[in-house]
């Protein structure tokens, strides 16, 4: 019994790691309706920036998180400026409704993500960076028969704060209102006087800031900071987002937890080599049987 409980707890902590990445990812998707392929690299950049700050100044964790949040937000604005904005330079109705113009940003964000990853690799090398071990978030805490680590609590707290904060911003502030307006109908929002460009830049700032914080937290949690670290969490967050119905942030979080728990539980029955298949299986099942996502409600197709 303890064994199953321990696997469940490990699954929950895996799921929270995915959720942390999925929140920012889904927020950005929600406003533009396109996938931001560079989110994984923003996550990596967050981890490297955090590591550099730790190594050079050794400040308390909270300070590092705030600086990483700021750097992530700036990265997000830059990313939007270079990979997304150039495709919105015409404001006529036909262009705004054109899927091709919107979806060209899949390629431009992918291109920037490759440049960023290879750039980091050129500069730091592709190996794991050595980080001061005392900063790692992996001191065990025993709770009855199961063991968790302090990082689990920090990641849980951060995810919770992000989720609650976002819900508050989206539902109760004017920025949130304009984000929802642009997300719902960019053309309509523009006609009623919403500054769409600024709203989109804000969304990227917030989403990428969260992505960067996720990067440094997970980096410290596993003690593994390397240029390709954004890939796997990026894929899992993407699946969680699709399962959750594309633009539902709470939906993405719940689905991230489902993926994490299923992965850990699957390892009870099959070899861990198959563990990565769990997420892909969920993706296929969602696309076939729940084309609107599990939490998509009445919204558009996935």
């Amino acid at each position: 019994m303890d064994y199953y409980l321990q696997q469940l707890v490990i699954g929950l902590s895996l799921g929270m790691v995915y959720a942390l990445v999925a929140i920012g990812f889904t927020l950005i998707f929600g406003v533009l309706n396109v996938v931001n392929f560079a989110h994984g690299e923003v996550y990596t950049i967050g981890a490297f920036v955090g590591l550099l700050i730790f190594v050079s100044f050794a400040p308390p964790l909270v300070v590092v998180l705030l600086v990483v949040l700021a750097v992530g937000a700036m990265t997000g604005v830059g990313l939007e400026r270079f990979a997304f904005k150039p495709f919105r330079r015409f404001n006529d109705e036909a262009t705004l409704k054109s899927r091709a113009m919107r979806e060209a940003t899949l390629m431009s964000s992918l291109a920037l993500s490759i440049v960023a990853r290879e750039g980091i690799e050129l500069f730091f090398g592709s190996q794991f960076q050595s980080l001061p071990l005392k900063h790692m978030l992996n001191s065990p805490i025993k709770i009855g028969p199961v063991t968790i680590v302090d990082g689990d609590l920090i990641i849980f707290g951060t995810s919770f704060l992000m989720l609650a904060g976002l819900q508050f911003v989206l539902k109760h502030t004017s920025v949130g209102l304009s984000i929802r307006a642009v997300s719902n109908n960019p053309l309509g929002a523009r006609y009623v006087g919403v500054n769409t460009d600024r709203t989109i830049a804000w969304t990227f700032a917030v989403g990428s800031g969260m992505g960067a914080v996720a990067g440094i937290l997970v980096g410290l949690y596993y003690g593994a900071i390397f240029p390709a670290m954004g890939f796997t969490p990026g894929i899992k967050a993407f699946v969680a987002m699709v399962m959750g119905g594309l633009s539902s942030i709470p939906g993405a979080v719940v689905c991230a937890l489902i993926i994490g728990i299923s992965e850990a539980m699957s390892s009870i029955f099959v070899s861990s080599v198959w563990q990565d298949l769990v997420a892909y299986a969920f993706l296929i099942i969602t696309l076939i049987f729940f084309p609107r996502g599990i939490f998509g409600g009445a919204r558009e197709r996935v």
């Binding site: 696997q7 490990i10 699954g11 390709a228 992965e263 070899s271 080599v273 990565d276």
Partner: peptide, 15 residues
């Protein structure tokens, strides 16, 4: 048991 190279989380296997 075998695992995929670069596996982030070994805890399910260790358990």
């Amino acid at each position: 048991e075998f695992f995929n190279r670069g596996l982030a989380d070994f805890r399910p296997i260790i358990t």
